[in-house]
Simulated scan of single mutants.
Amino acid sequence: MRYQILIYNNPAFDDALENGLRDELDATHGAVIRELQASGELIETNELSTEAAVVVRTDSHKRVHTTDGPFIEAKEWVGGFYLVDCASIDRAVEIAGRFVEARFSPVEVRQLVHEPS
């Protein structure tokens, strides 16, 4: 089964990175990536830019409205993701629980509905 793991960030996490958490973060993600590549569970992973981000909405007249993103009037934002193919949601949750970011903000695990074409 395929799962999307969404890693949220917030200002407290950014502050922690500036105060010495960067090495632990890099080591943890590196270890998880190597493990998932070796097991064949990793489909894709990436960090999401906060520089090139736009929030798009349409109104009842189908007009497009945009604002600078990615902050949709929230204190948390999706900072990155993992797309994994693993045996169960329990395994996906176990992977998500390893991320340093989970100490500061949510890490969301969601099963994908559609199979790849």
Rank of each mutant, 00 (worst) to 15 (best):
3 Y>W: 01
3 Y>H: 03
3 Y>A: 03
3 Y>N: 02
6 L>V: 05
6 L>C: 04
6 L>H: 05
8 Y>N: 14
8 Y>D: 13
10 N>L: 07
10 N>G: 10
11 P>I: 00
12 A>C: 03
12 A>P: 05
14 D>N: 10
17 L>G: 05
18 E>N: 10
18 E>S: 13
18 E>F: 02
18 E>H: 06
21 L>S: 05
21 L>C: 03
21 L>E: 08
21 L>T: 03
21 L>G: 00
22 R>V: 14
23 D>Y: 02
24 E>N: 11
24 E>G: 09
26 D>Y: 13
28 T>M: 13
29 H>M: 08
30 G>P: 06
31 A>P: 08
31 A>N: 09
32 V>W: 02
33 I>A: 10
34 R>F: 05
35 E>P: 02
37 Q>T: 14
37 Q>H: 13
38 A>V: 08
38 A>Y: 06
38 A>G: 12
39 S>H: 07
40 G>W: 02
40 G>F: 02
41 E>A: 14
42 L>E: 12
42 L>V: 11
44 E>A: 15
45 T>L: 05
45 T>Y: 04
47 E>Y: 06
48 L>A: 12
48 L>V: 07
51 E>G: 11
51 E>V: 12
52 A>Y: 09
53 A>V: 00
53 A>N: 04
53 A>W: 00
53 A>F: 01
54 V>N: 05
55 V>L: 15
57 R>E: 13
58 T>I: 15
59 D>L: 06
60 S>V: 09
61 H>A: 14
61 H>R: 13
61 H>E: 14
63 R>S: 10
65 H>W: 03
66 T>F: 00
68 D>I: 07
68 D>G: 10
68 D>K: 11
69 G>P: 03
70 P>L: 00
70 P>D: 00
72 I>K: 15
72 I>V: 15
73 E>R: 14
73 E>T: 11
75 K>M: 05
75 K>C: 03
77 W>S: 05
77 W>V: 09
78 V>T: 07
78 V>R: 02
79 G>I: 00
79 G>Q: 00
81 F>W: 13
82 Y>A: 01
83 L>C: 12
84 V>Y: 00
86 C>R: 08
89 I>F: 03
89 I>P: 09
91 R>E: 11
93 V>N: 10
94 E>P: 13
94 E>W: 10
95 I>P: 11
96 A>W: 01
96 A>C: 07
96 A>S: 10
97 G>H: 01
98 R>L: 07
100 V>L: 15
100 V>D: 07
101 E>A: 15
103 R>P: 04
106 P>S: 09
106 P>Q: 04
107 V>P: 02
109 V>T: 12
109 V>W: 01
112 L>E: 04
114 H>V: 12
114 H>M: 11
115 E>A: 15
116 P>T: 01
